[in-house]
Amino acid sequence: MKKNKTFNLVIVGYGGQGVITLAEIIANAAFAQGYEVKQTENHGLSQRGGLLECHLRFGQEVFSPLVKRGGADLIISLDLFDAFSSLNYVNKKKTIILTNSEIFSPYPFKEISPKKIIPFLKKISKKLILVPTLKLIGNISKETSMINTLILGYALGKKLLPIKKKFILKAMTEKIRPQFLEKNKKIFDLGIQVAKKH
């Protein structure tokens, strides 16, 4: 990353997916790597299932914790449906959207087709990258709860985050409960490998 640059990241998803955990891991890793870090999150009214939006900015000198409108370098969306709600931060000239290709849970009983969302995301961003999470995780586990670490690995494998792997791993060890750590690391590595191949 260039010396005077601030990296602007927005992470979206729904409550229960580990959106804030993911933001904390990246924040702590960036901090350990020596960047100044500002991170903030919008909690909604609901404990589970509501929209969550985390902003993370790091660089040599960072003031605002919020990414400004049209200011994101990277948007990570843990559910395709939520990528749609991050449009405010997208900029055709620079924003890469890295998103889960699946819609796990829009809201009950409303079917929303990915076909409605994908072309639009493509049109307004610099680049759209879809991660086929269900297919990938299906190889290891039945649970969809580790999509956050899978996509994190994918982002690293694609060199979308200017952070070294060793700092991410250190932050994961600090933030993830020991009994889930090994499985998360495995899925994180899978993300990296798949991204390199894709």
């Binding site: 609901s46 404990q47 299932g49 709600s85 809201y107 009950p108 639009f120």
Partner: peptide, 24 residues
């Protein structure tokens, strides 16, 4: 102009957002 342009891009698009809801 840049700020207004960015706003114009999104005008007319209905951004659907997740509803807050009770946990399962």
């Amino acid at each position: 102009i840049n700020l207004e342009e960015q706003q114009r891009l999104l005008r007319g698009i209905k951004i659907e957002k997740r509803f807050p809801t009770f946990c399962p």
